[in-house]
Each structure stands twice: as structure tokens, then as C-alpha cells.
């Protein structure tokens, strides 16, 4: 077996806020192989973006990694300095931001913003080669190459999104994290863009982490899926396993709202109860206040994130709702 591209081990990340420590990522472990597509799904506020930002160590001033390892191509980047991180960023891992619409600087030409990344990571390239590269990237994502001399405000939402994807592809990263890459777009554009993204990924042999709150989106593009709840991974397995044989009651609830014909979209079902307050997360299993199968043990002890069948992991005291 080849060594994974990215291996996240027991990652815990907190935000220091006025009201106290907010545990946005708690003891999360997963790995990603070359060329693989991993989907991360969960309700709004469950910490998906936080996981992505932590992997790139792009946390805001008040966020810090409390524990864990982030192993990229065999090296743990947690102790890396900002200077060392600069090579990892974009060169090894690039990202399509949740608010990709605003990820382009309004005062520079779109092409120049891609060239800026190239200048940083491929300094041996001449100006002409860089232009050539941008042209290729634009063609790849389906934009006319003349658009590279335009400013972001002259682009439509979908075009901007494509430009941002071109930018993420520019330095030939090993993996791309796409945080809600299509949320802001209308459904038709969303659909075609997702398909195209999956195509580039296969074509360029990159690994990809797709993040979305939309189960349909995840179903469409992912090989493996991680379900997040309140900063923790609730379950992880192949797309097939997650959609057809969920173990965690939270996943089950997610899937019950999701028609079995993969490809159709529905929004996440509204579970009874409130999403948890991460400032004071519930004890034990964080899902217990909303879980129909919860028992005393769920309230007191945190379930281990363990393998139920090879490659299918879940953190639950009552897998599939069984009362043992």
C-alpha cells in the first residue's frame, strides 16, 4: 500500500473567544490517498471549514491547534513555521474557498492573480511561460483565455468560481480542498461545475477533499465520505457504505432525508433539537441530546471512533441504533 498523501491524526483545534474556548475540531483523524476524493459533510457550523483551514494552517489569530498531527507527504506540518508553510500552501495543497466569489482581489486582473502564485512556486518560469500556463488553465476550466486580462468584477459568479478553480490548479498541487465550491451558484451551474471538477481531478490525478453541507453534492463526487457532527467525525466510509449502510444515528438521520437514487438533491433534514453549542459541547457523545437511541453511557462517555468493518469507521455506542 502506498503512503497516504495526507494523514490527519487526532486533530484538535480550538478558537479562543470572549465567551471561552470553542472546540471547533475535536480529535479528528482521517487520511487521503493519491487521486482519491474524500467528501466531508455536516450541518452548518460543525467545523468543516475549520478542518480545511487547519490542514493549511490558515487559522485566524484566535485559532490554534491544540493537539494532533497533520502529515503531508510523510512530514508533520504542525510544527512548521509560516515560512515553511508557504511551500506547502498551493505547492502541495491548494484550496477553493467557501466564499470563492470574494477570493479574488478586486483590484488585480484575474490572470495576474494566478501568475502571482506561479511566480511564488515556479520561479524558474518566464513571463511568457506563465501566460501560456494561465491560458491552458483557463481552457481547462472552460474560460476563454482572453478573460485573463479582465478584473473580477467583470466576471459572473460561475466564471469567478472557475477562475478560482483554475487558480487552485495552477501550481500542480497534490491535493485540493474545495470548501463548498458550488454553494453560491445556481443549481444548473452547480451541477456542471461539479462534474467538471471531478473530471479534472481524475485527469490530473489529484486528490480532493470536497466539503459541503449538501449530501447530494458529496454523493456525486466522493469516493469516501466523512460525516462531521459538532467538531467530530461521526462516521467515515466509502460513499456506498455511508449512503446505504450508515452506522451512526446521525448519518442515518441524514440519509433518511436523502433519496436512494444518488444524484438528486435535497437539503439536510432538520433534526429535532438544536445544533450543539461548541462553547459548551455536550458531554460524552456530542450527538446524544438529539439521538433517539441515546442511553446513559452516551451522556457520560465519549465513544471511540473505531472500525466496524474494514475502512468503515464510526463513533457510536449504539451502532445502527442497536441497544446492546
Amino acid at each position: 500500500m502506498t503512503e497516504p498523501l495526507l494523514q490527519v491524526e487526532n486533530l484538535t483545534m480550538h478558537y479562543t473567544t470572549r465567551a471561552g474556548e470553542l472546540s471547533a475540531v475535536d480529535n479528528v483523524s482521517f487520511s487521503l490517498k493519491k487521486g482519491e476524493a474524500l467528501g466531508l459533510v455536516g450541518e452548518s457550523g460543525c467545523g468543516k471549514t475549520s478542518v480545511a483551514l487547519t490542514v493549511l494552517k490558515l487559522l485566524p489569530e484566535n485559532g490554534y491547534i491544540k493537539e494532533g498531527k497533520i502529515i503531508v507527504n510523510g512530514k508533520d506540518i504542525v510544527p512548521y513555521t509560516e515560512q515553511e508553510m508557504r511551500k506547502v500552501r498551493w505547492g502541495e495543497i491548494s484550496m477553493v474557498f467557501q466564499a470563492a466569489m470574494n477570493a479574488l482581489n478586486p483590484v488585480y486582473r484575474v490572470g495576474d492573480q494566478i501568475i502571482e502564485a506561479l511566480e511564488e512556486h515556479q520561479p524558474q518560469m518566464t513571463n511568457k511561460e506563465m501566460k501560456q500556463k494561465v491560458t491552458e488553465l483557463f481552457e481547462l476550466v472552460g474560460l476563454e483565455s482572453a478573460l485573463m486580462d479582465r478584473f473580477p468584477h467583470e466576471f459572473s459568479g460561475g466564471m469567478r468560481q472557475r477562475a478560482v478553480i483554475a487558480m487552485a490548479l495552477s501550481c500542480g498541487p497534490d491535493m485540493i480542498i474545495a470548501d463548498e465550491p458550488t454553494t453560491a451558484l445556481d443549481v444548473i451551474v452547480q451541477d456542471s461545475l461539479l462534474k467538471e471538477m471531478r473530471e479534472f481531478q481524475d485527469q490530473l490525478g489529484m486528490a480532493m477533499i470536497y466539503i459541503s453541507h449538501d449530501v447530494g453534492v458529496i454523493a456525486e463526487v466522493s469516493d469516501r465520505v466523512g460525516v462531521m457532527y459538532a467538531g467530530r467525525l461521526a462516521e467515515m466510509g466509502t460513499a456506498e457504505e455511508i449512503f446505504h449502510d450508515p452506522i451512526h444515528p446521525y448519518t442515518m438521520a441524514l440519509m433518511s432525508s436523502f433519496p436512494s437514487t444518488v444524484g438528486e438533491k435535497t437539503d439536510l433534514v432538520l433534526l429535532p433539537g438544536e445544533p450543539p453549542d461548541l462553547l459548551n459541547p455536550p458531554t460524552g457523545c456530542r450527538f446524544h441530546p438529539r439521538c433517539p437511541y441515546a442511553t446513559d453511557v452516551c451522556k457520560e462517555e465519549q465513544p471511540e471512533f473505531k472500525e466496524h468493518s474494514p475502512g468503515h469507521l464510526a463513533a457510536c455506542w449504539h451502532p445502527r441504533g442497536e441497544q446492546s
Binding site: 490558515l58 509560516e82 508557504r86 500552501r89 484550496m95 470574494n102 482581489n105 502564485a117 511564488e120
Partner: peptide
């Protein structure tokens, strides 16, 4: 702004993020 975060993600230098 998001584009500042994006610039940081691109791995460009702190000085360029600040000034440019």
C-alpha cells in the same frame, strides 16, 4: 477579506500579502 486569506493560502510572502 477573503482575498487576503486566499493570498495567504497561495503561499506568497507576508510582505506581499500586506502590501500588495
Amino acid at each position: 477579506e477573503d482575498y487576503v486569506l486566499a493570498a495567504r493560502a497561495k503561499g506568497i510572502s507576508e510582505k506581499a500579502i500586506r502590501d500588495r
